[in-house]
Design a protein around this nucleic acid. Structure first.
Lengths: 342, 342
DNA sequence: AGATATATTCGAAGCGGTTCGCTTCCACGG
DNA sequence: CCGTGGAAGCGAACCGCTTCGAATATATCT
């Protein structure tokens, strides 16, 4: 492999000149520049990442901590990842993948300067990785809002608001008994921030609206779903409106309801909180609050980059949700769409 | 950050000694070693990845090229990725993520020595990235088998065999008219190797068995599926046995068939070629040939690592498929056969 | 003209490791 | 008692790039 020195010789200049041609940090005369570029081209030179990292103290690599566990939402994760990688490239950064459970990994890549910054997904309320990460003195952005961010910046979808507008939508349609089918038990138990927020938003909005409500977790399998539906819909709760925040469940929903002799939306209205593609690639498109995974991933990288050079205050950004009505929600049976019924 | 020099001073030895303690490439007396380790501990020293990469000419990073397009199978991809990352860690390697469409990325990370080796997923028959990658003189393994591997090693699931045993299973059950519902048109058109092989395996086995057969692509939406089923099952083809290789379709299958008044398995038997989790997390578990994504990912990394130090011949490895009968296949209507016959 | 800017380029000192060759010390055999 | 060999540690030469200060040359100002 040709080195910068080889290029310098070939172009009849010093290495520093080559370096400045490449970095543009000092002005170089057009003639010199073109000679250098010609030499680079001729030798097929490309800079050595390690050497550059050593000298400049920047690796041009961003770490991305992704959850590869079973109980998360694969396609949302993929969308995040795609957004992060794409955006990172716009900043000349590559992306190093770390897994959730590799706790030492975060410490390793930061302390060894493998990465210049970090994006961490799937934050839980009291996340043990956060104090660790905060110590490392590298720019980092959390996707999700923990109880204590330890001075790190966060970005997230406003799941509480998503839940609230879902409730309001159902209430506006005249539903008086509603229910939330949430993430798998595991997500709730580890207090994934999205799971907690969806639930609290749901309960808060329901209370405000003065409707009957209940909520529960649900695993991503037909049996669990059937049981949940039996409890919430056909059981004593008798909910006529459902908010579902569980992507893996969506494909099973229609099927399972049908087996229970329940029609959508005649017997039960359903609002999904899910990525757009899940909401629309179903036999019938769901009324849904879309999770803009791409925007969030992009913004996360932007926030990291903003903090890479200049010191910058930590901030929390929430992405505002919007509900799109499709065909799975209608006015409650026996309700006039406008007036509250008691 | 403490450097190796700081450690050396604190321990009262030379830097080379510290280096040898860390790498174990030369013998160091127990006393010296423990002093050095104590100093490392006390100073919280950790080696600088860039410096190490420069001096040793190894970055300890593996590149992984993943498809982030829409028409691939997200959950399989995730399983691969998880397997690759986990296995890489066992070799002290981190994983750098590259996307399919970032063609320059492959060249960049190899020529700049950002990575020590590469794993590339979602290979197509005449993949333009392959000659490029072959030139780069870094160990690389393709997941998928292209027409011309240019001297690179490949690993893949034996999709042709998977298809063949699916056909044989149906034939053994007495089905005489069978059909294949394959990947989306886009996958076929770009000649993703798995799509091609599934189809040719299907046709070959069908011909051998002397049964009527047909096959077609199908997009991952209910309308497309309904149309495919109309053509293959209720239409003139009148297939009673179906092989489905399209993960995204599986959740819609049951639903769509029901709407067409078709029962599984009474009216039509179905074999899925899909990852285990997709096959079993359905309202009814599918008879299926599982795609062992994890094994393949792991092996891919192992193959790269094997080629990292020693020169080693290129090879093609195929993972042998196995069919698990569950509840979606039974003897053909009006056939005397009650089970697989050999 | 002499002095002060301005535009380019060079040289050298790092950045923080790895590794090779050499020295030192000590035990052991003849 | 000397020679030999192995164990342990040291020093210095890189690895390839960035960056700062200085040098040179040309342009501008008074």
């Amino acid at each position: 492999m040709a080195t910068m020195n080889d290029v310098a010789k070939a172009a009849g200049v010093s290495t520093s000149t080559v370096s400045y041609v490449l970095s543009g940090k000092r002005t170089i005369s057009p003639e010199t520049k073109s000679q250098v570029l010609a030499a680079i081209d001729k030798l097929g030179y490309s800079p050595h990442a390690g050497a550059r990292a050593l000298a400049s103290n920047r690796s041009n690599v961003l770490g991305l901590v992704v959850p590869l566990r079973e109980d998360v939402n694969v396609s949302v994760v993929m969308q995040f990842v795609a957004a992060v990688v794409t955006t990172a490239r716009n900043f000349q950064q590559d992306v190093l993948l770390l897994t959730q459970d590799d706790l030492g990994g975060i410490e390793r890549v930061t302390s060894q300067s493998v990465v210049d910054g970090l994006v961490m997904m799937d934050i839980v309320a009291r996340d043990p990785r956060i104090p660790l990460l905060a110590k490392m003195n590298k720019p980092a952005v959390l996707i999700g809002v923990p109880d204590d961010a330890h001075g790190l910046s966060c970005i997230d979808f406003d799941f509480a608001a998503a839940s609230r507008i879902s409730v309001r939508h159902l209430v506006d349609l005249g539903h008086r008994r509603i229910a939330l089918i949430g993430s798998p038990q595991a997500s709730l138990e580890r207090h994934a921030t999205y799971a907690d927020r969806v639930r609290s938003g749901f309960e808060e909005a329901s209370r405000t609206a003065g409707v009957e409500f209940s909520s529960r977790a649900c695993e991503a399998n037909p049996t669990a779903l059937a049981e949940a539906l039996r409890e919430l819909v056909t059981g004593p709760q008798g909910a006529t409106g459902l908010v579902v925040h569980n992507e893996a469940l969506m494909p099973l929903m229609r099927d399972t309801l049908a087996e229970m002799q329940l029609r959508i939306p005649e017997d039960v209205s359903v609002v999904a909180i899910a990525p757009t593609d899940v909401a629309v690639s179903s036999t019938v498109p769901w009324t849904a609050v879309s999770i803009p995974a791409h925007d969030i991933g992009r913004t996360a990288v932007e926030m990291v980059m903003e903090r890479m050079h200049e010191q910058r205050a930590a901030e929390v950004r929430l992405v505002v949700p919007a509900l799109v009505q499709r065909s799975t929600t209608v006015a409650a049976p026996g309700s006039s769409k406008s007036g509250p019924v008691h």
